[in-house]
Simulated scan of single mutants.
Amino acid sequence: MIIGLTGGIGSGKTTVAKIFSKFQNTTVYYADIEAKKLMITSNVIKENMINEFGENTYINGQLNTTHIADIVFNDKEKLKTLNEIVHPEVYKHLTQFVEKNKNKDYILYENAILFENKSDSFCDKIITVTAPIDIRINRVIERDKVSSKSVKTRIQNQWNNDLKIMQSNYVIKNKKLKDTEKQVFKIHNILTNQL
């Protein structure tokens, strides 16, 4: 069973995924982390990225994230192009991961843009993580050391939370860690009781 886990930037998807990862016989695929690794290791991605975004895309073999962010978060077409370059390779990698872990009770597939890139189509169930907008903005400012304006631009490039919630099986409200943990345990119990 593949369980999609999504939510807007700063909602706390990774925190929620880490709580899920503590359960026995489950595993987590972090799409953002794997995508970043593939952007450095996959020759197919590298070649397409340089063709599309220029020679400054990589510095000493490392992805120049500031250069990419400046381009894609100010141009929806460029963001779409970036996803079209990276997503097929991530999907291949995910397919291998699923095959390797098919004995697990379920695989949690953490992906910030699960709906945006239509990855929801291969999930059995979907969980959306939400948090108040001010908390989300403050979390990202603290985590990424960026301006409030920069965070708001990123939020505008993602689907509205209401749209995500409407297409989800479960919603986790992530404000206080203790409450979040209770919600995760409840969902885990529901998922494993269905097996």
Rank of each mutant, 00 (worst) to 15 (best):
residue 4 G to F: 01
residue 153 T to A: 15
residue 85 I to C: 12
residue 26 T to Y: 02
residue 142 E to M: 05
residue 43 N to L: 11
residue 64 N to K: 04
residue 42 S to V: 07
residue 137 I to S: 01
residue 73 F to Y: 14
residue 100 K to R: 11
residue 102 K to G: 00
residue 133 I to F: 00
residue 124 D to I: 00
residue 179 D to S: 10
residue 142 E to P: 00
residue 123 C to A: 03
residue 88 P to S: 10
residue 153 T to P: 01
residue 33 I to W: 05
residue 158 Q to P: 13
residue 162 D to R: 08
residue 173 K to M: 08
residue 55 E to F: 12
residue 67 H to P: 05
residue 186 K to Y: 11
residue 17 A to L: 13
residue 23 F to L: 09
residue 104 K to M: 13
residue 73 F to A: 07
residue 121 S to M: 10
residue 111 N to A: 15
residue 54 G to I: 07
residue 60 N to D: 15
residue 59 I to D: 04
residue 161 N to C: 12
residue 14 T to L: 11
residue 83 N to V: 09
residue 63 L to V: 15
residue 147 S to M: 06
residue 62 Q to P: 00
residue 150 S to K: 14
residue 65 T to Q: 11
residue 175 K to Q: 14
residue 82 L to M: 14
residue 121 S to W: 00
residue 162 D to W: 02
residue 133 I to K: 11
residue 36 K to V: 07
residue 37 K to Q: 13
residue 134 D to K: 04
residue 132 P to G: 04
residue 123 C to T: 07
residue 193 N to A: 11
residue 54 G to Q: 07
residue 117 N to Y: 05
residue 191 L to M: 03
residue 153 T to F: 07
residue 81 T to A: 14
residue 10 G to K: 05
residue 21 S to P: 05
residue 15 T to R: 08
residue 162 D to V: 08
residue 171 V to G: 04
residue 102 K to L: 05
residue 108 L to Y: 01
residue 41 T to F: 04
residue 144 D to A: 08
residue 152 K to C: 09
residue 145 K to W: 01
residue 181 E to K: 10
residue 46 K to R: 15
residue 47 E to C: 03
residue 142 E to T: 09
residue 117 N to I: 13
residue 54 G to R: 09
residue 21 S to K: 14
residue 54 G to V: 12
residue 11 S to N: 09
residue 20 F to R: 10
residue 118 K to R: 10
